[in-house]
């Protein structure tokens, strides 16, 4: 089965981020979205540890241990950047000032519940970080994840079996097979990997899915 590559997924998310948007990119796969933002758009990246106007990774040798992102990797500032303390940073999330955040996930439910912080395994050490604040705070919450687990089960589920991060908070899901909107009427596929039929996508997803695809699939 053909799948979107991680770069294609990141490019597909980046296409939906508007000029002028304030955006928080989660740790891991979502971080790749920054590499695909269209050059003609000015997007202001927020990092939870107190920076707006985050730039790309520094050149080797130019790292600064006081200038890092949420994943504790070295970053840079762009002209126009600002620093602020943690309570301000999370007020930006909780207060609805961020236009969009992109998060990874273990599971998303058909109602838009998100599970991405804890597998619930007995020996796992729990860690939540800023996930719960982002999930309920940003105006639009985008999830980026593989459509299926390694065992082939859908990560889009009727009810999350992992501990939830937030309830009814996800607006759109980008997977390696499709782009799916979470709407009050249910899940709607709006894009699909070329070569995959909608009926097959619906079968793999396993929860009710409406066909909102354009007549011809758009290229990634």
């Amino acid at each position: 089965m053909k799948r979107f590559t991680r770069d294609e997924m990141a490019a597909r998310v980046a296409r939906d981020i508007e000029d002028g948007a304030y955006v928080n990119l989660g740790i891991g796969l979502p971080t790749m979205v920054a590499n695909h933002l269209p050059k003609d758009r000015e997007v202001i990246l927020h990092t939870e540890n107190g920076l707006l106007g985050m730039g790309p990774a520094p050149a080797p040798g130019a790292e600064d241990s006081d200038l890092i992102n949420a994943g504790k990797q070295p970053v840079t500032t762009l002209p126009g950047a600002s620093f602020f303390h943690h309570a301000d940073s999370f007020a930006m999330m909780r207060g609805g000032h961020l236009d969009c955040c992109v998060l990874g996930a273990f599971q998303v439910s058909a109602q838009g519940d998100l599970a991405n912080w804890h597998t619930g395994a007995k020996d796992a050490i729990p860690a939540v970080g800023g996930a719960m604040d982002l999930a309920i705070g940003a105006k639009s919450v985008y999830v980026m994840m593989e459509h299926l687990t390694k065992q082939g089960e859908s990560k889009i589920v009727a009810q999350c079996t992992y501990p939830v991060t937030g309830l009814r908070c996800v607006n759109r899901i980008y997977t390696d097979l499709a782009v799916i909107d979470v709407t009050p009427q249910g899940l709607v596929a709006i894009d699909i990997v070329p070569g995959l039929a909608f009926d097959e996508l619906a079968r793999l997803t396993g929860v009710p899915l409406a066909n909102g695809l354009a007549a011809a699939p758009t290229p990634a």
Partner: peptide, 24 residues
């Protein structure tokens, strides 16, 4: 503690706020 609640609970202590309602 979720990170934003951690920060706001610390801020509340410094600001003399007895408690607050958070959506997080």
């Amino acid at each position: 503690v979720p990170q934003g609640n951690l920060a706001e609970r610390i801020r509340a202590a410094g600001a003399g706020i007895g408690a607050f309602f958070s959506p997080t």
